[in-house]
Amino acid sequence: MSSLLSHEIGYSAPIEVHNHGFSPYVNNEGTSLGICGEDFVLVASDTRQSNGGYSINARRSPKAFELSNRTVIATTGCAADAKQLVEDMEQRAQYYVHKHGREMSTPAMAQVLSQLLYTRRFFPYYVFPIFAGLDAKGKGAVYNYDAIGNIECVSHYAYGSAAALLQPFLDNQINKAHQRGADTTAKPSRAQAVKLAIDAFTSATERDIYTGDWLEIFIVDSEGVHKLTRELKHD
């Protein structure tokens, strides 16, 4: 009956369509990078949070986090979404420990992150994560994702407002891109990786207004997660 009525008078119940000016996203900018070593991984992020324009929200609002004793995650994009995503990851990691009595492996967590992103395929988390950790053999692994869960395992990666500055630098220094006769198979040592991360961010701070204030570096090795903090320019 109701379908007949609605057919005849062309009436149907209001559906929830929200096409107004509100945008649920803001790009809080900032930069993150990940470097994979033989028996370690390094993840680094600056701590500046911007409002998407010329204002700095906070000088110290970290976007890289320790997820377990052998995994870390660095984010860029919408800080609100990133916070939610990281909390989801922490919760999934905790559930796994309670259920199985051990920590989730790094590749498994990498897959969980991809799935969490894809569950929001049609209302994406505006987040570009770099996930890193040690695999079962103790080797380093760096994964990068797009906002809807495409996953890739790489030797190094940069995301965020200064990604275009950092990526070619890392390609050159780590993969020895364009260096004739260089050994392209060698992976960086821990000291080299830290030095590269610091140099990369110091330079990015000079050219990118969204990168600066403090640099947080996480290094994961067989002993666990180590954190270094370094000051960047506050301008």
Binding site: F22, P24, Y25, V26, N28, Q49, N51, N57, A58, R59, R60, S61, C78, A79, A80, K83, Q84
Partner: peptide, 9 residues
């Protein structure tokens, strides 16, 4: 704020 952006400062 209205987007859920948070920070401490």
């Amino acid at each position: 704020d209205l987007i859920g952006t948070t920070y401490e400062s």
